[in-house]
Design a binder for these strands. Sequence first.
RNA 1: GCCCCUGUGGCGCAAUGGUAGCGCGGUCGACUUGUAAUCGACAGGUUAGGGGUUCGAGUCCCCUCUGGGGCUCCA
Length: 584
Amino acid sequence: MLDHASVDTQKISPTEELRHRMRHSAAHVMADAVLQLFPEAKMGIGPPTQDGFYYDFEVSRPFTPEDLESIQKLMLESIARSSAFQREELSREDAKARFADQPYKLEIIDGIPDAETLSIYRHGDFIDLCQGPHLESTGQIPAIKLLHVAGAYWRGDEHRPMLQRIYGTAFESQEMLEDHLERLEEAEKRDHRVLGRQLGLFSIHEEIGPGLVVWHPKGGVIRSKLEDYWRDLHFRHGYSIVYSPHIGKAQLWQTSGHLDFYRESMYAPVIVDEQEYYLKPMNCPFHIMIYRSNQHSYRELPLRIAELGTVYRYERSGVLHGLMRVRGFTQDDAHIFCLPEQVEDEIGGVLDLTFELLEAFGFSEYSISLSTRPEKYVGEPEMWEHATESLRKALVDRGLDYDIDDGGGAFYGPKIDIKIKDALGRDWQCTTVQFDFNLPERFDLTYQDSEGGRSRPYMVHRAILGSLERFLGILIEHYAGAFPLWLAPVQAVVIPIADRHLDYAQSVRQQLQDQGFRVEVDSRGERMNLKIRNAQLQKIPYMLVVGDAEIEQGAAAVRLREGTNLGPLPMAEVVQRMKDGLAG
RNA sequence: GCCCCUGUGGCGCAAUGGUAGCGCGGUCGACUUGUAAUCGACAGGUUAGGGGUUCGAGUCCCCUCUGGGGCUCCA
């Protein structure tokens, strides 16, 4: 049930078009099977998706895993019969008569403009209202698999009935289907919630509250290394680093407009000395107060104020997910206040900083979108134009491909969003660079211009990693828990073979520690093999085995977590190798 | 928030309505061992919380909470 034109036909390749068509056909075959098993089912819609397809149904009871098996079995039979798909056009009246017992289909028909031709697709005894196109026959669907069931509101509207959605996928061959299922399994193995527990990185507790994360010592190392790098990078790019409190008076949020427009995402106020204070959902008002605490000359601008600022937002309980969607998180936030003629350079600088930062974590593929002025907006159209143009120019100057989301900007300014592609090819939205024509007005921000008058600065919000919690979640999955040396919580573990090697093991640890490495000695009275296994499971980059031979040579036998055994190396060489490892 | 699923020692799991077990981990002891799991003993649970049905509830019912899959794809 896809409005074919909606699937971004401009960008879709012929093979993708064919795949969509196949999956769309698979959705029909599934609906057919469901109606055979559940004749009373009311059909919703059933389009192809990026990874497969789904179809929504209203049924008297939810589908069970066993139902999925039966449905899939019927689908395979239908595919084996190879029934032809036939298109038929019909009048509105005929369509309504045909779908008289399908209320959702009737609603769809009513929503279609009179000028459009209605069509149905038939295969075997099954008929569905559908624009198409489809394959020639059900026999052209090579490989299918039904995956899971979930509730989904009719038309995505929480005030409408909830239907049962069956997700499935289809591929051009059994092998491709299996590859896809393997990728899903791989993603499951990398799940940051599982690795986070196994590697002792973080936890979330019922006692603390949903969506609130505590970082454990090992996760704390990763996070603090990331933060150190982030700060250093920002200093190098001309930012000032600031700190601000977690709560602020109601008046502040009133002035900023958050209480009027963002309240549903904010926590209820706390009362102190009969004054209301709100937990901050954003850092901007604080950075603005920093700006406002002095008068500014045009000579001082641009001013780049950055903070790893922890904010709290109410997220509906059903959307919370590990580190990816939480209620308390730390933004790598910054606000740039600048002159109109500086805007372009500033945006360019943000982009350069962005790619330098993301590449440090091994990300190199991006998808970028530029969102322009929506219908409802604040500020002067000329400013919007200037800002949008400077965003566009910064992208073009750097030879970056981007999509335009026309009218997709916030009411207060145009923006660039950047998604990164992780090791499994999944997209994650992290970076956002956003003009703000609203807050400078609300807080009456000014600077003394070169003519001696007072002018309003441009203000740009930007976050590169987005939220540290989320970014670390992405990193855990991206690296599958095997962090590069510079981030690894424990960079090397020294493994003495027998108790008599303990003293030497400690001296090896000390030598590396003196060089700034994070090293532990596994001094348990266990066998070497067990210690190696543990170190492997903890994904520790270097395992340094020491026994009689190594003591004699002043060496350590180096095993890498990739599994290679380099044999005994003199300590000086071990140190050098690890230093080289930091760079690469 | 809504729909469905789920909740048993720190973790992963088991237990036809009839005595709560297993593995990992932990502690202790023995072993002193060359590149992914040595052996043994011990400790550890009011089965998420509350209510109900029953002679009897981890198991069935209700409520609350937690976690998970989803809720943009509009023929």
